[in-house]
Design a protein around this nucleic acid. Structure first.
Lengths: 212, 212
DNA sequence: GCCGATTTGTGAAATAATTTTCAATAATAA
DNA sequence: TTATTATTGAAAATTATTTCACAAATCGGC
């Protein structure tokens, strides 16, 4: 089901490339070199060429890459040619911000359902997204065939909620809680830990003066 | 200024360890093995031992690690024994959520100043944090000696604001915009790109069925 | 004090990711 | 047409990170 396993490091860069290709496209550029891309996305040009080459020969020597065909290619690869529905669990502080954030503007991901324990939120609509009571989590995920959830619940309930979501058939979790949740091996977790990021930043500042 | 250069990959895991050590400490455990830690933080135990070993022999063979002394050690390393002030630039959707988020609960980072272009926000206090007009950015950063900023402005102004912040002496930037900002080599940028994370997750789901 | 069970710390091996280098090719200028 | 310049793709070299596997140290019970 894949183009012979792309390195993880490469996979993580694909959305970055995709995004910049869109910008080029919108400004009517029709060719781009790895050097030029490198400037914009802050990735070494050799790394970019290497990344691209995993997918075959996408460019032309002496010319560069054709923006439109590269864009079309990555759109396909990243599944951005169809809409992906995601659910948001936990409409608190951060959850609310993400509801407003509207991923849809930049990508073909849409939060199509949200869940919260608070009774006053259940069965309302926030930022155009229907909020369901937590008790319906599993059922709604199943019914709506949602494969991706964004987890913005308090840490204390994160594992329970995760188990429910997994039971509902979820395959990918964007985990905003600091808890390292446990999931079966066929479920993928992407952690976004804000406190962590800040602490790492501070560590680097204190211990890696100048450069990397 | 460092303990002979810790690998970057290790540095990124330090806050994860630190966090779990706090949990152990709070539940009055006084020893922990790399295997036990491994379960909780989802990092291979050999990797944990290797990570720790960069700082010297922190454990005891046949025993494990002493929670309190390890905690004390990491607290020092991560600068969590002093309060670090940060500024938040852009009090919009996400910015507001982060103001409420209160990093201080889990770490010794505090947002002590925020900035926004909107005149009705300037000179108010939101979630206990004073909001300054954008024009004062450089001056306030200098006066308050703030070295870390959280960037939650629209992409279109991200580079300009960054340049201002750098002029104000900032050394670390937690960048929530999708733009890969340009900074001098002595300034460190940590990118948190939510759309990216979601797209990467989708890519993994579609192309890496079962396991990594 | 001795013995068996644990568990670290670390060389060495394996794996992953980046960077260098350069031949091949395309575009452009002369 | 031909020479010059730009640029990719890929092999090789390098660097970074993880994992294996085991000797050495420590603990706890007897």
């Amino acid at each position: 089901m894949a183009e012979t396993k792309i390195p993880k490091a490469t996979a993580k860069r694909l959305p970055i490339y995709y995004r910049y290709l869109n910008i080029l496209h919108d400004s009517d550029k029709n060719r781009v070199s790895s050097t030029e891309l490198s400037e914009a996305v802050k990735v070494d040009s050799a790394t970019i060429r290497r990344d691209f080459s995993y997918f075959g020969a996408l460019g032309k020597r002496g010319y560069g890459y054709d923006v439109d065909s590269l864009l079309k290619f990555f759109k396909k690869i990243l599944n951005q040619d169809k809409l992906t529905n995601a659910a948001l669990i936990g409409v608190g502080n951060l959850g609310n911000a993400l509801l407003n954030f509207n991923f849809h503007q930049n990508s073909n991901v849409r939060i199509s359902a949200a869940f919260d324990v608070r009774p006053d939120l259940a069965n309302t609509v926030q930022s155009g997204v229907p909020i369901y009571p937590m008790a319906e989590l599993r059922k709604q995920l199943e019914d709506q065939q949602i494969k991706i959830v964004i987890l913005t619940v308090p840490e204390s309930v994160a594992q329970n909620v995760t188990d429910d979501a997994v039971a509902g058939g979820v395959q990918g979790i964007l985990n905003f809680t600091p808890l390292r949740i446990s999931v079966p091996s066929n479920v993928r977790v992407q952690n976004v830990d804000l406190t962590n990021e800040l602490q790492t930043l501070i560590y680097f500042l204190d211990h890696y003066n100048e450069e990397d």
